[in-house]
Write a protein that binds this DNA or RNA. Sequence first.
DNA 1: GCCAACGTTGGC
DNA 2: GCCAACGTTGGC
Length: 139
Amino acid sequence: MQYWLFKSETTTWSWDQQVAKGDAGEEWDGVRNYQARNFMREMKVGDRGFFYHSQKERAIVGIVEVIAEAHPDSTTDDDRWECVDIKAVKPVKTPVTLDDIKAEPRLSEMVLVRNSRLSVQPVTAEEWRIVCEMAGVSD
DNA sequence: GCCAACGTTGGC
DNA sequence: GCCAACGTTGGC
């Protein structure tokens, strides 16, 4: 099982909207970046991810799960672009902000810190554990 | 609102 | 195939 981080602007697609989709989930469409797409191609059903709000809020606010592997992005006819489907699992108890992450030396290698522009990123098992601890969630 | 970092495009 | 120009993202 792999861990990931999905980044979204609240005005484009927020955690609340994701939660409203329930177990049916929603496709993570609109990605037009090869690196991000390639990570989505590696995802397997059951993989977990953090849901991160970029721009104003800049915090991890929830846990999501991959429920469908990469398939063509329905928002474009361009067959280069694919996306996975994800569903909200649960909100975090305490949002973990970018500042919190930067203040934690063990998280200094996170892609979120090193390459802030990448919208879909891998998270290591250790990083996952540490962030979950900070967020007050059990897994 | 600014700007640094990064990715993409297109001319050569 | 290189690289300058341009567009976009996201932190500050």
